[in-house]
Amino acid sequence: MSAGHRLAPPAAIARHTLLLLTGALVMVPFVWMVSLSLKPPGEIFRTSFSLLPEEWHAIENYTKALTEVPLPRYMLNGVIISAAILVLQILVCAPAAYALAKLDFRGRDALFGLVLIGLLIPHQVLALPLFILGYNLDILNTYAALIFPFVVSPFGIFLFRQFFKSIPDDVVHAARLDGLSELAIVWKIMVPMAMPAVIAFSIFSVVSHWNDLFWPLIAVRSESLMPPPLGIMAFKNEEAGNDYGPLMAASTLVVLPLIVVFLAAQKWFVEGLGKGSVK
């Protein structure tokens, strides 16, 4: 119990049961996916239920997943796209958020209002205009097509702006007196101080773009550019639907890096939040 008080045993048991049940509910599809990825085709469609396969088929499934389709290629694409999007997003969002949080200029609040409106618009609404824009720029079916719609992230600007606002003005003043330019203040003072927000945003950004299916489906055709979810879809089509073992193995491989990264970052995240503030 984080608050440091102990619950009476019945209450504790009830609470933990509830938490475990909810946790299990969320976990079921993942467990099911991993379980299926270990089974031979015959067992997958059997009516009886078992978590572990009678006959282990893991090696076959995973080999097939890695060799039938260029899964490593998809994953490399995923890394390239997610990393490029994240880096560009931070490059754009941090200075924009700094301006909205700490600089005083005419029209600032109106601009921030536009950012909030940007938050409300679902990506899907913009798909067609973005597609036409990509066509006119002649970048469809390239990495650039997969990256450009996400470079300016209203959510990132909003999140950073809120965090920067919580940093005392005196820190900015001190930095100015110390001789830092406004951009140097952003990169040397604000962003390092906002590390928890940067990490939270990074998790959010990487997860959503690694898993994105909708936009890549529109923007690219060539297999060598496909990010993992699109690749898995291609897989499914080729295999005509009944070879679930390798499909699940591929899905497991695709989710795995996210889980690893998330666990690693989570530790960082907690550490970042725990550090003392200025005073």
Partner: peptide, 12 residues
């Protein structure tokens, strides 16, 4: 040079 009430040190 200025010394601030909150000291305004860079925590990182």
């Amino acid at each position: 040079a200025m010394v601030f009430q909150s000291y305004a040190l860079y925590p990182h």
